[in-house]
Design a binder for these strands. Structure first.
Lengths: 146, 146, 146, 146
DNA sequence: GTGGTCTAGACCACG
DNA sequence: GTGGTCTAGACCACT
């Protein structure tokens, strides 16, 4: 297991005040996405609860809530008195539940872009770009090397 | 202009208790989607605030809030003492605003499905299916003046 | 969906000050257990966040945290402005994850009782008693009736 | 009394980072379990606080805390300037206290597995397997005076 | 130092 | 009225 320190020059996550999502959700989604993309590899140490709170100038409880959700999902692991680390990936949901969630997300996405007047081809093209970093990596399938 | 009356036997919209979205959001999204698909054509009369509230057994303030948002967007129009009608399509948002909203929706969508472990191809295929009914209609595009 | 009101004469859950588990966990475990046993049937309305907090003389945020976890697990459903309700049961975890959790729970249980000096038969007998209400009910397998 | 030395090639206990329990708890439970199973017989010499800390690459205070708890329970004994040894078994808890702990452990166990959807028979079968090594040994029962 | 829990109280979104 | 989020600050458990 490798521990990577974070300097002050870059951060694991940025929060956007204009974003509709609550702060803790932005943190959860952002870190989950970075882990899925392989930008945060298993074993990486995340900023401490207090550290990230200071960095983002938000409350420690907000960070703690985000980390708690990621820990429940199995994305990270919190160890009292030690720190927070990115976990080895594993599949936790049943096929049915995963499909249900995909369908729900699709429905929500379509309903929010349908009235914007974009060509379906344009939407698909942009989504493809967004998904591209995930195509050949498959970080959730690679074998453990610990 | 054609006026279509709605009887009690079918409804413009159905609300689902299992849906993550609040009721007023389901109404807004649902009607906007039907208009975009061409299932609700301009001039169609919608149920009154009180009528829809009765029909769905929800609070009138909830329907009023949904109709107010749709009216602000220019999707529907309330004529005092007459009723609520679907508007002629027109583009109200700037190119930048529309792109900003698409990008935000994409980001939200990707972050919520990325950890489900689906192949990008699978996601794109399903989205294509979902967008298919919109391909040849494009009611919101025909009067676009850009 | 049936809504059941709760009078002041009995409560969904009791917290024990001598219990090693934190308060929010006692609430989560207690309600999950009652649902699994069939004592709380789908559609039942749970006390409001403020109501349960008053009843147990704890903070509202503690109750909210417990309800949030149960909602994530799919045991209950929270609807803003409406209330909290017991959900229809469904299987959300993969076979592997369920077996992993059972093994972990077993390991924890054995390690905590092994030094108490009880006969294995005695432990098995008591566990059987504890599990008995679940044998013929199988509330998690019955079909939805909605 | 027999003294058994521990080389560097194997250890009394292993800590697992994926374990939900804190490190000191893993040490306490692990040694108590080995003593109960008879894998560590009375008089066996355990690694020193500093030695075990080095071996597991953890803090000495963590090992000291674990040994202190085991000493309080009467499982091990520290002799200044000599070393740490497994004690002769003796029953230190009252019948009531032992039953209270068993009941609490049972309650915690049931509440954590009940929602996993396993058949009670399956759970009992697996627990029986887990308890089997303890059936005919019962080192903690032979000097019980109750 | 680390993370986890709880309280007290505020504000917002929803019906 | 309902639940959801955030802040501020305290205390505890762990290393």
């Amino acid at each position: 297991m490798r521990h990577t320190a974070f300097g002050a020059e870059f951060s694991v996550i940025q929060i956007v005040t204009g974003d509709a999502r609550p702060i803790f959700r932005q943190i959860v989604d952002g870190i989950r996405l970075k882990v899925a993309k392989g930008e945060l590899v298993p074993g990486t140490r995340l900023p401490s609860v207090r550290g990230l709170a200071l960095q983002l100038t938000i409350n420690t409880t907000t960070v703690a809530k985000a980390y708690a959700e990621l820990a429940t999902e199995g994305v990270i692991e919190s160890r009292k008195g030690v720190g927070v680390f990115v976990c080895e990936p594993r599949q936790r949901l049943s096929r049915e539940e995963r499909e249900r969630r995909l369908a729900e997300a699709l429905r929500l996405f379509v309903s929010s872009v349908v009235a914007l007047g974009f060509e379906p081809e344009e939407i698909l093209r942009q989504l493809e770009q967004e998904l591209e970093p995930l195509v050949s990596r498959k970080p959730y399938l690679k074998t453990q090397s610990e």
